[in-house]
């Protein structure tokens, strides 16, 4: 019965071929440092799942944001757990992604033929930091408000175009409802979309090129 269903699907989807290309392939024997990349992916998926749950109650307006988080923490069943995971997951993700970058650096894994894997990875690190920066404002508490005030001020000191960047980030000269809407939109649409696209390329390259081996003394 299952055999039949599988065959029917395989004929149309090519499941065997995918299994052969993605899972059933030989790779060099590697150590535990090589798990950091998949750990980054796992954390991103966790952030996505918990983030989607948070958006069900979170309201991105200066009047309501703080109270909606308060409600998530006290009113929603397991809201504290979801927010706690999202909060700590964000920090952990930055840490793990950074360590993953260091691993690939110290093993020289960015060299031929994996240059583009590094390139997409470095953009992923920047986008992850962007997620952290935009997410930090969302709870609309003192910490969030003042960190973002100073953060956007720093962006405003770029010579020539600083003022433009500042206004583009804040949606005006001051932090306001527009800023919050902007950060929220970037945090749940723009940046995650960019991350998903880049991760796809990143993964495709990893499967195509295979994971690098631990370099020996003559390499």
């Amino acid at each position: 019965m299952f055999e039949k269903i599988f065959q029917w699907l395989d004929e149309r989807l090519g499941l065997e071929a995918i299994y052969g290309a993605v899972l059933d392939r030989k790779v060099p024997k590697v150590n535990w440092w090589f798990t950091l990349g998949s750990a980054s992916l796992f954390l991103f998926v966790m952030q996505g799942i918990t983030g989607i749950f948070l958006t069900m109650y979170y309201v991105p307006s200066p009047d309501k944001a703080y109270d909606s988080i308060q409600y998530i923490m006290n009113g929603v069943a397991f809201g504290w757990l979801i927010r706690g995971i999202h909060h700590w997951g964000a920090s952990l993700m930055v840490l793990i992604v950074f360590l993953h970058m260091l691993r690939t650096f110290f093993y020289g894994a960015y060299k031929y033929p994996r240059e583009i894997t590094w390139l997409t990875g470095s953009l992923l690190l920047l986008l992850t930091l962007g997620m952290g920066f935009t997410g930090y404002l969302l709870p609309w508490n003192q910490r969030a408000y003042w960190a973002t005030t100073v953060g956007t001020e720093i962006a405003g000191t770029v010579p020539g175009i600083g003022d433009f960047i500042l206004r583009a980030l804040r949606g005006g000269s001051d932090l306001s409802a527009v800023t919050l809407a902007r950060f929220f939109s970037a945090h749940i649409w723009l940046l995650p979309l960019g991350i998903v696209l880049l991760i796809s390329v990143h993964m495709y390259l990893i499967i195509r090129l295979g994971i690098s081996n631990v370099p020996g003394e003559d390499e």
Partner: peptide
């Protein structure tokens, strides 16, 4: 190196899952 290596599934995946 690949010749001397292991299968992605399950050898590598199991480490990844453990860490995650």
């Amino acid at each position: 190196a690949k010749q001397k290596g292991v299968k992605f599934w399950p050898d590598i995946i199991y480490k990844d899952l453990l860490v995650s």
